[in-house]
Write a protein that binds this DNA or RNA. Structure first.
Lengths: 257, 257
DNA sequence: GTCATTTTTGACGGTTCGTCATATTAAGTG
DNA sequence: CACTTAATATGACGAACCGTCAAAAATGAC
């Protein structure tokens, strides 16, 4: 009896472990598939990517692949989700920098820029996932997941904003527009990076120039909402470099080559 | 002799006329095809659009359609070009408003917003045409045309900026960054509208809210670059409405329904 | 060892794309 | 008007791609 109970206990425990193992295995395979997909995109471009190629390049059959992704666009969406995950991890790290709150805010922007530089394909997937072609076809679950991650990112910005308001770095009468502020920051970051990534390819603008352009845009906006210290009082170009050196040194040096 | 000459003259003239007629005819047909394509997209979504459907819905054969567009993405690019043409026409009209230079600048932003509202599909095509999936496949000629139109739009912004600088509405020491300023405005406008068009569909945000969000973003940025009169000194919500009433009354009232 | 359930497989049908040999039309010429 | 030549239009066709599904294999319970 006790024995039996213990076995069932063990058994259920085992089942739980197995389930989580299986789920883990499935999750791992999904990441593996996404990796293969990204490699194909890197080598053959977005238009060169096909589900058949993915099936050929991975060790699973078509049915298994379609078990993970409802369709091609769903896979794009999954790539976008991984990209956002990566971005969030960068953003969280960036908050560790020593300095003013505005410098921390700069760090958030720096993270997005870094993402677009380290994994351009991934960043482009995030862009494409906002495109109707993807939104119309991706699975509901995936789209919801994406929205959740978007909320996570805006939550990071929001939190920083409210501490800046309570600490007085942003004028308190802005408090009623906190949500608007967050949206403004996000719009600027998104718009700048989206345009820059195209410009960089089309017109061969140097990385330095694009970084400066981005910093210029952010500074203008942050000055506009009166986030102290203003760019006239502080050398944010210096801060920008510092973020790279202090928080993202490994990534930045890897990027140099 | 004279007669003969006159006939050849007539003839060449006739040829010229014919050629231009033919070219005109071809150009018209292209617009016709683009119209049909847009209708299909409106009714069946972007993912529901296929070249076969286009061929079925127009009075021309597949070969003729492919005579106009190198491939599907090239057609998207063509739609984007038409969209930008329309946007430019709106922007030019918007400059006619009476008021400060900053209000004229608001007009430029208003134009883009209006475009995204009147012809959402067209606006989305402009977005999609910045996507690698399209950029990789569209024909060279079309892509170049697109770049030219982009330059035209930025030229409008640039011109306004430099008059604002010379007139003193923007501090003169900003002059060295004129290009950066233009890029900042463009980034903000693009980012805001791109995010808003998704938000509006996903989260059912009202048009009023989205308009306010956009205006908030612009004001923050323009304040940041010190474009006088600042938003604290002037009711730009009023200006925004005025632009709609004075310059785009027809479009706005058509949009009310 | 057997059965039920889940997962995997890849052959297959249906779409979609884009091409190309052929047919048609138009322009030029005598 | 007849004839040649050049330009344009046609739609049948092959190739590629997508996504499904019945059958096979694997897994786990008893």
């Amino acid at each position: 009896m006790t024995f039996k109970q213990s076995t069932t206990e063990k058994s259920t425990c085992f089942i739980h472990k197995l389930l989580s193992n299986r789920e883990q295995k499935i999750a791992n395979r999904e990441l593996e598939l996404l990796n293969v997909a990204e490699k194909i995109m890197i080598h053959e471009g977005f238009s060169g990517f096909t589900m058949d190629k993915l099936v050929a390049d991975c060790n699973y059959s078509k049915g298994t692949v379609y078990n993970h992704f409802a369709n091609k666009e769903d896979l794009f969406c999954a790539l976008s989700i991984e990209g956002m995950r990566f971005l969030i991890s960068l953003m969280q790290r960036s908050l560790n920098i020593q300095g003013t709150l505005r410098e921390k805010c700069l760090g958030l922007f720096y993270s997005q820029r870094l993402h677009s530089q380290i994994h351009p394909t991934s960043f482009l997937c995030v862009l494409m996932a906002k495109t109707p072609a993807v939104l119309e076809r991706a699975s509901k679950a995936r789209l919801e997941h994406q929205i959740i991650l978007e909320q996570e990112t805006t939550a990071l910005v929001d939190k920083l904003l409210s501490t800046a308001i309570t600490s007085g770095d942003i004028n308190e009468n802005r408090k009623q527009h906190e949500e608007s502020l967050c949206f403004a920051l996000w719009s600027m970051s998104f718009g700048s990076n989206a345009l820059l990534i195209n410009a960089a390819e089309a017109k061969a603008v140097s990385r330095l120039d694009t970084n400066n352009a981005l910093l210029f845009n952010i500074n203008a906006l942050l000055d506009g909402i009166g986030w102290k210290p203003l760019s006239s009082e502080c050398d944010y170009q210096q801060s920008w470099l510092r973020i790279g050196n202090e928080v993202f040194s490994k990534e930045v040096s890897a990027l140099q080559e």
